[in-house]
Structures are given as structure tokens and as C-alpha cells.
Design a binder for these strands. Structure first.
Lengths: 332, 332
DNA sequence: TCATCCAATTGAAACCTTTCAATTGGATTC
DNA sequence: GAATCCAATTGAAAGGTTTCAATTGGATGA
């Protein structure tokens, strides 16, 4: 395969000139440039990025290691990252850890060795030592959609406590009093925060406490199971509204209720969380708490680029605000 | 930042030995190995993949350039690719062209320059010259979920004509006669093929031809619009079943119908296509034609790896078979 | 005509690793 | 005790690019 040397020989110029055509075209006379470009085409020259990078030390790629590529939430965050990346002429590589620690570690290692310009990651455990290790080994890292307790890394996340509060306040506004929280396990920080917010909102309004319908995961299937449990309650004790820890649960719950002949929102109002694309596309469009996904990605990418080339960079923990999107599932 | 040279000095061995510890550990005595490994930890040594790759010529990464990362179909294909990649100890980078030709080209260029071991791509236009150019410049390429007419590249796709046939045969079995096809534009090969299959199935059964409800895109929104059009038809001419070119259309259609008080499947049966996760999670679970997504990814990855290291590789066009998944939207 | 300047071009060094032929030195064999 | 062998280790070359100080040669000004 042809290299700069071959191109130089074929065009009758020196090796350095070929490099200039590639990197500093304005320094080369038009005639020479044309000759060199022709030679490149003729020989099918393809720049070797490894050698280029080895010598120059610079790389023009960012990477996002995501928790679950099948979850539309994360692909939307990725789209936000890409916006910033593209405007800075960076390429973005996405990697899917698929909730497996071994894969997360393997990808991070690979990316560090590859000397990418920066890594964005939504980690399985934001406290994990290997995250800080990445930064320590020399590659800028920003944690996305999680907030590590240690402030040794930059992070961008959304205020989930506030999100939970927004959800119940909306339900209170609509006149509901008996409100259920569907979600779990509480070991997931986000689930915990959203519940805390919900409780806070009810407390402040002097409303009765939530009934917690605990789930084992935040999936559609678990949402259906939760629906069965709600249907099993005696009518008098049945909540009039449910706040779900995410949209998948809400969709499962919705499916179960509609399938059993209950009306949404008349028999039970539902609020989800994340406002994924399919929330608005459901048979009964879902009210949901929207996180600024693109903004999340954009800010994270800006932080990682700043860390990469601003010597005075200091780590910061950015917290963005969620917003409630009201639809039929609570408005009727 | 520490390199092998520094590690060698610190451990009191030669540079070659450090390299052996990294690449041929069995050739190094345990004592030496330990010394070297300690030195690596102490100095925070991180292998430089660029230099490694430059010298060895080998890379352990594959890449998948996908059409739309937000579409669960493609992330499932990616998961299949990753299965194969992982078992061969490869990393997979995903890139999102987002239906933009300029981005597709930019990513392909970047990946070729990076000398990845192989590229999988679901292209915007499977006939585009730049695809063949990639292969020509030396990186193995496999086209996924599309079949280029020219047989100059490997490809793996699913038989969409058969899929369309399966859909209408199922509806005929359920006693439907007036069947609508919802989809478009016909410039999309997949839409065209599915319609061809549907027509074939009806012809063979001697049933009346489909009514085509043309859409401008295959989105939920367009599905809703199609729903309005169907509702606008006089009752006698209204179809009793609809076959949608994909699940997004089907979900939109479902939403519109349910919102207008029609019953699915009693007033209108619906068949979608792709069997995305949310098809089964809809309020009325959707009957859909399932493509073997993981298999698609796995086979494509196998092909690209074969092309990369089997000198006798010959290009092939693999066609997989779809399968119908019957759910409430046609069964009641 | 000579000195000066500037743009264009050159050539060698550097980037960091892997590879491989060559060397070392201890153990085995006769 | 010499010859042989083998595992462990070494050192230098190679891989393809970018960088940068140095050189060239034509144009400008005096």
C-alpha cells in the first residue's frame, strides 16, 4: 500500500512537501499541490492515521461509552455529544457496555491505549475506581447522566429529585391525592432520587404519602407486573395516579391497564420519566418528565474538550433541570 | 508520559523484554515479568496503540456505521455484531451517519485512515460509489440490511419480499379480504420490496389487490396521518386490515385508531414490520414481521472478519428469512 | 550588480512500539 | 571437561507520518 514516500517519488517532490500538501496546503504552490494530489489519486494513497497520530500526538476522536445502546435515552445523549463533536471536527465513536462491568473496563482500556482525545461515559457505577484511573492515565473523562460523589471528575447530570417533585406536583394540580410510585430497585441512584423528590413534593403539599409499588427492574415487563398489583388492590385503596420511575415502566403499566379495560387517565393517571420517543407515540400519549438529553450530551462534550486543551481546566459537576411534558395520560 | 523505554530502564531490563512481557508473556521468566509489571504500575505505563499498530500492522477494532442510532432495529443489529466481535476479541466502534451522506463519507474516511480491521455499514445508498471505494482502498466492508446490485461487496440482508408475503398471508388466514398497505415513499427499496411481497401473496390467493395508503416517511407521525385517511373512508370501502411498512407507522396508526375509539383488531387488524421492542409493549401488542436482527449482525461480522484474514475470501450476498410474530393486533 | 528577503521546498530526526536475528549463560549430554 | 542445546534476554531496525531547521532560487530594492 502506497505511503507518502511513494507519493513523493511518483510526484517528483520530497516527502516533506507531500506532508505539507496534507497538512499545510497553503504553504505549497498550486502547481506542486496539483501534481501531488494527482499522484495520491493514482496510487490510491490513504493516510495512515496511526503514524500520523504517533508523530503528532493529536487525535481527532471522542468516544462515548454508553450503558445500553438499545435505550433511546442514551442514543439521544449521543446525538447531543455528536453535535458538539462535529462542530469541532471530531469524530465520535460509540461503545456499548451493555451494563456489563467487564465490557466497560475493556472499552475504557482500549480507548485510553488508542489515545482518543476524550472519553464520555455513563458508567455502571459512578464511584468505580477504574473511572478515576482513566483520567489518571492521561485521558480526559466526563461522566454523563450520573454524579460521582468524589469530585475528581467532571460530570453532567439532571436533577432527578426535582424531576420527581415536578411529577407529583403536576398530579396534585390535577386533583389527585392517592398517588403510587412505581419503581425499583432503590439501589439505582436515579430511582432513589426520583422517589425522594416525589415524597418531598407530597410532604410540602401536606398530601398523604406515596404508596410504593416496588419493581425489580425498570422494564416494560415489570411495569405490567406492577399493573397487576394495582389492579389487585381493593377499589377504595387503589391509587388514582401513578408516577413511574421511567417510561418503560409506564408503558408496561399502561399496557396492562388498557388490556384490562381500565381507562387512562380516568381510572388511573400515569406520569413517566425520560420522555422517550415512544412515550408520545403510545396509544394513550404519556405525560413524562423530560430530561434535556441533547443538552446533556452537548455540555459533556464541551467539558471533555475543555479538559483536553485548556491547561487551566477545573473539574465541575453540572446539574441540568428537567421539565414536565403533559399529555393525555394525565390530562384526559 | 512513560513509554516502554522508561519501563525498561526502571525495571533494569531491555526494551525488547518489556515488549515480550506485553505480547509474549510466556517467553519471559516469572521473576523478570514481575519486575516489569511492577515498573509498569509504578510509572503508570499505558501502551500506545498507535505505535503498536503502526509497527504490527494489525488492529483489533471493527466499526459499524449505522443509518440511525435512535432506531432500535439498528442497535439490535449492532448487538449481534458485537457478539461476534467480542468472541474474536475485537472492539466495536459504532458511528451514526444519521441519514446524512456527508457524515457517512466522513466516518468511512476516518475509519479507513484508522486502518480498522473491517467496516460494517448500513448505507444511505447501497449503490454509492464511495462504498466500493472503501474496499478498494484496502479495508474490508460488508453492507448490512441492504443488498447492493453490484456484487462487488459482501452483504447480509433479509428477504423483504417474503416478509411482505408472510404479512398478508397471515391476514388472509384470519379471514381478511380488504387489506391496505401503509407505507412509502417507494424510493426506499425495503418499502418497495414489502409491497411487492404483499401483492404477490394476495395475487396467489386470488384476493382483491391492496389499497395503498402512501406515506412520506416511515415515522409514527406519518402513521397517524395514515390513520386519519383510513378513518375518512366510507365504511363500506374501509379496509379490515392494514399492513404497515414498519412498526413506527403501525404504532402511529394504532394510536390514531384507538384515540378515535376504534377497536383493534375488531375494526381494523394491524401488522407491522421489524418487531421492535416497543411493538410488543404497545397498548395493543402488535403483530409484526420479525427480522433476525442479531443473526444479521453476527453473519455480517463473520463475513468482514473472513474478508480480513482469509486470502481466499469471495464476496457473497447473504439473504436471511423473516418470520411473523402474531400478537393481539391481529388475533384479538 | 550586489545584497536582501521571502516563499517554496527539502532532508533528517523524532514519535513508540514490535520484530527478529543475535547473544548470553546455565543446564544437559557424552 | 568439552560440546551441545535451550530458554531468556538483548539491541537494532523498521513501520509511515509530522516537524522543523536548513536550503534553494527567484524577486525586490538600492
Amino acid at each position: 500500500m502506497a505511503g507518502v514516500k511513494d507519493v513523493a517519488a511518483h510526484a517528483g517532490v520530497s516527502l516533506g512537501t507531500v506532508s505539507n500538501v496534507l497538512n499545510q496546503p497553503h504553504r505549497v504552490s498550486p502547481a506542486t499541490r496539483r501534481k501531488v494530489e494527482e499522484a495520491m489519486v493514482e496510487l490510491g494513497f490513504v493516510r495512515n492515521e496511526a503514524a500520523r497520530h504517533l508523530r503528532s500526538g493529536r487525535s481527532r476522536t471522542l468516544a462515548y461509552v454508553m450503558l445500553d445502546a438499545a435505550n433511546p435515552f442514551f442514543t439521544d445523549v449521543a446525538a447531543g455529544i455528536e453535535e458538539t463533536a462535529e462542530s469541532g471536527r471530531f469524530s465520535l465513536y460509540m461503545c456499548n457496555s451493555d451494563n456489563r462491568v467487564d465490557r466497560e473496563v475493556a472499552y475504557l482500556d482500549h480507548l485510553v491505549e488508542q489515545r482518543v482525545q476524550g472519553i464520555l461515559v455513563t458508567p455502571i457505577d459512578p464511584e468505580a475506581a477504574h473511572l478515576a484511573a482513566v483520567a489518571h492515565r492521561g485521558t480526559p473523562v466526563v461522566v454523563v447522566d450520573r454524579t460521582p460523589r468524589e469530585q475528581a471528575l467532571c460530570s453532567v447530570a439532571v436533577d432527578d429529585v426535582l424531576g420527581g417533585r415536578l411529577a407529583v406536583e403536576h398530579l396534585l394540580d390535577r386533583g389527585h391525592e392517592r398517588i403510587a410510585f412505581v419503581g425499583g430497585p432503590e439501589s439505582i441512584g436515579q430511582v432513589r432520587d426520583r422517589l425522594v423528590g416525589a415524597r418531598g413534593g407530597l410532604d410540602d403539599a401536606g398530601a398523604p404519602p406515596v404508596t410504593v409499588i416496588a419493581t425489580e427492574a425498570t422494564t416494560v415487563r415489570e411495569g405490567r407486573t406492577a399493573g397487576e398489583r394495582i389492579l389487585g388492590l381493593p377499589r377504595a385503596k387503589r391509587p388514582t395516579a401513578a408516577f413511574c420511575a421511567n417510561d418503560l415502566l409506564a408503558l408496561g403499566l399502561l399496557q396492562q391497564l388498557v388490556g384490562s379495560g381500565l381507562a387512562v387517565p380516568d381510572d388511573l393517571a400515569i406520569v413517566g420519566y425520560d420522555d422517550i420517543y415512544f412515550a408520545g407515540a403510545a396509544a394513550v400519549p404519556l405525560t413524562s418528565v423530560r430530561q434535556p438529553r441533547h443538552e446533556l450530551g452537548r455540555r459533556a462534550a464541551q467539558l471533555v474538550l475543555d479538559e483536553a486543551d485548556n491547561p487551566e481546566h477545573s473539574h465541575q459537576q453540572v446539574v441540568l433541570l428537567p421539565e414536565l411534558v403533559a399529555r393525555t395520560s394525565t390530562l384526559g
